Amino acid sequence: NQASVVANQLIPIQTALTLVMMRSEVVTPVGIPAEDIPRLVSMQVNRAVPLGTTLMPDMVKGYA
């Protein structure tokens, strides 16, 4: 099973992502693949992302 990127904390809207905000976890449905974590650093979320939420491509500006 492929690991996805999951929020390690509440990430407020417009926040630039850092490594400490994300973790990898095998979840359903599958979100952004964990191997993309380095690419996500400094990208902004376009909505508030609660703790434990799987990051989906449409939540990160410039990802999809």
Score class of each variant (00 low, 15 high):
Met21His: 08
Thr54Pro: 05
Arg47Tyr: 10
Glu25Val: 10
Pro12Ile: 05
Arg47Leu: 07
Ser42His: 11
Thr28Lys: 12
Asp58Tyr: 14
Thr54Cys: 05
Gly31Met: 02
Val60Trp: 02
Thr54Ile: 09
Ala64Asn: 13
Ala34Ser: 12
Val41Glu: 05
Ser42Phe: 08
Leu10Pro: 11
Arg39Asn: 11
Leu51Thr: 12
Thr54Asn: 00
Leu51Asn: 14
Gly31Ile: 02
Gly62Glu: 10
Arg39Phe: 11
Arg47Ile: 11
Asp58Ala: 12
Gln2Thr: 14
Pro33Thr: 07
Thr18Ser: 09
Thr54Lys: 03
Ile37Arg: 05
Leu40Met: 06
Val49Gly: 02
Leu19Val: 11
Arg39Asp: 07
Asn1Tyr: 14
Met56Leu: 11
Val49Trp: 03
Val60Leu: 12
Ile11Leu: 07
Pro29Met: 04
Val60Gly: 02
Gln14Met: 11
Ser24Pro: 13
Val20Lys: 15
Leu51His: 11
Asn1Thr: 13
Met59Val: 06
Tyr63Phe: 11
Pro38Gly: 13
Met22Asn: 02
Ile11Ser: 00
Ile11Ala: 01
Ala7Ser: 11
Val27Ser: 05
Ala48Val: 13
Ile37Gln: 04
Ile37Trp: 03
Arg39Gln: 10
Val20Ser: 15
Tyr63Lys: 01
Met21Cys: 04
Gln9Asn: 08
Val30Arg: 14
Gln44Asn: 10
Met21Lys: 00
Thr53Lys: 08
Thr18Phe: 04
Arg23Gly: 08
Val45Gln: 00
Gln14Ile: 04
Tyr63Asn: 03
Val5His: 01
Val27Glu: 01
Leu10Trp: 13
Val5Gly: 01
Gln9Trp: 07
Leu55Gln: 01
Ala48His: 13
Tyr63Met: 05
Val27Met: 06
Ser42Thr: 15
Arg47His: 10
Gln14Pro: 02
Lys61Cys: 07
Ala3Gln: 09
Ile37Val: 06
Leu51Lys: 14
Arg23His: 05
Gln44Pro: 08
Glu25His: 08
Met22Trp: 03
Val60Thr: 02
Lys61Ala: 08
Pro57Thr: 05
Ala7Val: 07
Val20Pro: 12
Asp36Arg: 08
Asn1Ser: 15
Pro57Arg: 07
Met21Gln: 03
Ile37Glu: 02
Asn1Arg: 09
Pro57Met: 06
Glu25Leu: 10
Val5Phe: 03
Ile11Arg: 02
Val30Trp: 11
Gly62Pro: 05
Ser4Val: 02
Pro29Gly: 04
Asn46Thr: 13
Pro57Lys: 10
Leu55Glu: 00
Ala16Thr: 12
Ile11Gly: 01
Leu10Phe: 15
Thr15Asp: 03
Met43Gly: 03
Val30Asp: 07
Leu40His: 00
Arg23Ala: 06
Ser4Leu: 01
Leu19Asp: 07
Ala34Lys: 05
Ser24Thr: 10
Gly52Lys: 03
Arg47Trp: 09
Pro33Cys: 07
Pro38Val: 09
Pro57Leu: 04
Ile11Val: 06
Gly31Arg: 00
Pro38Lys: 13
Ser42Trp: 07
Gln44Tyr: 15
Pro50Met: 14
Met22Glu: 02
Arg39Ala: 08
Thr15Gly: 05
Val41Pro: 02
Asn8Tyr: 04
Met43Cys: 07
Ala7Tyr: 02
Met59Arg: 03
Val20Gln: 13
Tyr63Pro: 04
Pro29Phe: 04
Val45Asp: 04
Ala16Met: 15
Pro50Gln: 11
Val26Ala: 09
Pro50Val: 06
Val60Lys: 02
Arg47Asp: 07
Asp58Ile: 08
Gly62Asn: 10
Glu25Gly: 12
Pro38Trp: 12
Thr18Asp: 05
Glu35Ser: 15
Leu51Ala: 14
Val49Asn: 03
Ile11Asp: 01
Ala3Lys: 13
Glu25Pro: 01
Ala16Arg: 11
Val5Lys: 01
Val49Phe: 02
Val20Ala: 14
Ile11Tyr: 02
